[in-house]
Computed example of a mutant assay.
Amino acid sequence: MSIAARPLDADALARAGFRTSAPGHRHAEASFERSGRLDQDAPRTGQARRIAAALLRLWGMAELADSACLAVSELVTNAFVHGQGETVTMRMFVADTHLRVEVRDGGSWTPRPRPVDLLAQSGRGTLLVEAFADAWGVTGDGTVWCVFHPAGGAR
């Protein structure tokens, strides 16, 4: 079973707030305004996942869709649940050897992984990102990033 979302066409990507680079370049950014209500912001995770899946197909990296979409789900959800900024921004970049996904909530805090409570119903998102991504971390400005290498790519 795949968690990759249904394809989006170019018009749907534009309505979703998707901005892409010039033809021939492979990087994109999508920003989502925070409503302040989790029930209204929850659909943004699916929207971010659909954007990520569409970009990966567009960039010829569909084999990364399941892992990357799982990471996008976790990082965007964490940004909406725990973040403090008014905007959640997802960026994706492709280099010759890897895909990099970045999520930032626009707040002034730096996210930190918490110890996992094995009995809790949530709190395992960063463990999933760590398991599926080839590398991940947090920058000084609070941007959470992860890297994926295509099959046969350099690690």
Score class of each variant (00 low, 15 high):
L38I: 15
G106R: 06
P115G: 07
T77I: 02
L13D: 02
Q84L: 13
T45E: 09
V81W: 02
I51Q: 00
I3E: 06
L75Q: 12
W59Q: 03
V116P: 01
R44D: 05
V94L: 01
R44F: 05
L13N: 03
A22V: 15
G142S: 06
D96V: 07
T45Q: 10
S67H: 02
G24L: 13
I3P: 01
L38P: 08
N78P: 05
S21H: 15
R49W: 00
R44G: 00
C69N: 04
D105W: 06
Q47F: 01
R34L: 05
W109L: 14
R155T: 09
C146I: 05
F18P: 00
L70F: 02
H98C: 10
W145R: 01
F132S: 02
L8H: 04
D11T: 14
G36K: 10
G85W: 08
D39V: 12
A68R: 04
D96P: 10
S35N: 13
V81S: 04
A12S: 14
E102Q: 10
A79C: 12
W145I: 02
V72F: 02
Q121G: 15
G152L: 06
R50G: 09
A28I: 06
G140A: 15
A4Q: 03
D117E: 10
R114N: 12
A30S: 15
R15I: 14
H25S: 14
P115L: 09
S108C: 08
T87L: 14
H82C: 03
A79R: 02
W136R: 05
M90D: 00
F148W: 05
E74N: 06
